[in-house]
Amino acid sequence: MTGHAHPITHLTDTIVRIFTEIGFDVADGPELETEWNNFDALNVPRDHPSRDMQDTFWIKKKPGVDKLGRPMGHVLRTHTSSVQVRAMDTWSKKSEEEKKSQPLAIVVPGKVFRNEATDATHESQFYQVEGLLVGEDVTLSHLKGVLETFFSKLFGKNTEVRLRSSFFPFVEPGVEVDMQCFKCEGGGCGLCKQTGWIEIMGAGMVHPNVLKNCGINPRKYKGFAFGGGMDRLAMLKWGIDDIRLLYNGDLRVVNQF
């Protein structure tokens, strides 16, 4: 009898197959992050309401020093976006020729943490997938193109996306991404609450402050970024009713995949 892969592993595999095909490298980074990489560099300043958007696990640890010489704390990363910061830092050090010939294109599936009460749809640990493309002529059109390709391949049918105005500190413009409901194909059903659309990701054009913080000149380069919950994708795709079942090691769940 062969063993079974965890549903998030199946999803990671599918995501990686689709994105490496388009030309995105897969990146990862530590789960225990600095305050700079998780917040400040991403234009989420101290004592700002935007920090409230994510409940954070802070770590008891001797503070470090950030890029601006300030003391910085440590957190369990609240999003995979901290890997964007690391990747941009590295990319920014390349020569202009290299940057022009090879845009920074990464996809980051990874574990993240939120300090919030758990229930059937919320966990203190879960998985996100993050995407980033930085280059000379990147626009929101490309974001739409990449995400439509992704969802279409993931669900095995043509899946449109639509963008709605929203706010995330690390992007400007910031959008909420809805995908066409894969179940009713936009006609309206219980899964999409009769709207034909499913809210699935946050995205936008990388905020110039983020580029600057990572050593990239926003006059020369632009980028898009997106991020969403993999658990939510898995739950939608396979109809899993309780996120907590993914983390208690129950083979009654895993063996179905």
């Binding site: 990146a27 010939s101 090879q102 845009p103 493309l133 490309h142 193109g145 963008l163």
Partner: peptide, 19 residues
Amino acid sequence: GYDAIKTILPKLPRKGLPH
């Protein structure tokens, strides 16, 4: 309205790599 934004798949120079 963002619906006016076209859908373009960027052409990247090579296939991506896993870490």
